[in-house]
Design a protein around this nucleic acid. Structure first.
Lengths: 244, 244
DNA sequence: CGACTTCTTGAGGAACGTCAACCGCAGTGG
DNA sequence: CCACTGCGGTTGACGTTCCTCAAGAAGTCG
């Protein structure tokens, strides 16, 4: 399950390359793929190499506060480009695998050559960065102002928006939770217990549902209500003085 | 206080252009400045134009949740490039002035020409984006895991790190709070009352001090302790089980 | 089977948000 | 000059919320 599978995985990625990369011309894609080496990581492992593209699984930037509290500041999903070359010397956390992860590690020099040679890669990268900035802003809004329930709803939509193989098989209202509760908690700024309770509450309100044997396969029962909730439809308690 | 001051302000900016722009060759700077038109905004006003450089004051991306809660997801300080061209159609908030603000609005077409013509501007922009991404990650970590006290300490350092004219006059351990309490609160995910109490607590612990007549001019009395606090040195209560 | 991890559930308490009131200041108009 | 108004900031009392702690359920691996 190493050499050959790796290649087939590259091909597979080339086929259904998500979001910005799918607009690349065939030779750009080929150059991108041959300039990188496939790497696999087990859960918890640090990803070596600070430049690459996620092929499968979820990566996260992990940061520990002085007293041990853990935070996940960013998540990377299949198709995402991660570039942490300026990261290390800023002590801004470590990139780790939040599950079984396949990624395409890029050699910086080769990457620059690739950028210089193929005109369509540059815009794709810019688009990536802009998307990323947008997600970070959404995330900041979640963390700054939302209740646990709202954060959970929001993060479920975030999971759903992510491109990836999952989407094809399941209906549009289905979401597979790709990471552990603890990682969700560290990402949305809650404790695992609270995440658990919030999901329970969403079930209780008939907003989501899941088969008992696959609790991580969630169906969004009431999408509009979930969307409203994710956008801040449920204030903390009283004082729902909307309108100003 | 319009036509002439504007020009002089441009010159002034060109002189002490902060962080990434100061490394530009003189003609690059000149091109940058002549490609933009100076704009001033009063507090609360939306900034027209979605591409530009902040010259003086503080801008913020403001977002309202469905029920009226307000969040500031990003702050822009003098020297920062803001590019919200993809922002509008993603309904990701509005750029508003958090005080009296001078900025240099850039015409997208002219900007692209500038980018294409001067080789040193591109890297400066990339550096900007990377810095920005780093700050967003710091901010996410603040919001996700830190207590009000820690958030305040952190945001004070953020204010201090910002380049700007303020720095020259005051000592290195002095910070001027550039925005209102309410804006601080909406930025760090607290309520103004809590911000007030946290500042009071910092005073009480002899970590910061300020003259009674200028309460927004803060002196960092114990920088190491403040730094530790900003990095998460004070957990919520017990369970300070550091080390894992 | 036991050791371990992840997830869940429950009870209790600290903490931050909520609400209300007050202070100081600036602008306004009689 | 002073009352009036509005705004930003502060302080205090109170209550909900979410974290803490502990224990149990369910799955995995040796």
């Amino acid at each position: 399950m190493t050499g050959v599978t790796v290649l087939s995985r590259q091909e597979q990625v080339a086929q259904g390359l998500p979001e910005p990369w799918d607009r690349l011309a065939p030779h750009s894609v080929r150059a991108l793929l041959t300039s990188g080496v496939p790497v696999s990581c087990a859960r918890g492992e640090a990803v070596d190499g600070d430049l690459g593209i996620v092929c499968d699984g979820t990566l996260g930037v992990e940061r520990y506060l002085s007293d041990g509290r853990r935070v996940l500041t960013v998540l990377f999903r299949p198709g995402d480009l991660f570039d942490l070359r300026r990261h290390e010397r800023l002590q801004q956390g470590k990139l780790i695998a939040l599950g079984e992860v396949w990624s395409l590690a890029l050699d910086p020099a080769a990457w620059e050559r690739c950028l210089a040679r193929f005109a369509d890669i540059g815009p794709a990268v810019v688009r990536q960065l802009e998307d990323h900035a947008g997600r970070m802003q959404d995330h900041a809004a979640d963390l700054a102002a939302k209740t646990p329930l709202e954060r959970l709803a929001s993060v479920l939509f975030e999971f759903r928006r992510w491109p990836g193989a999952d989407h094809a098989e399941q209906g549009p209202a289905r979401v597979r939770i790709p990471i552990m509760r603890r990682d969700i908690a560290d990402y949305v700024g809650l404790k695992p217990e609270t995440v658990s309770r919030a999901l329970r509450e969403l079930h209780g309100r008939r907003l989501i549902a899941s088969a008992p044997d696959v609790p991580d396969e969630i169906r969004l029962v009431d999408v509009p209500a979930m969307r409203l909730l994710a956008n801040g439809g449920a204030p903390r308690r009283s004082t729902g003085r909307s309108g100003f």
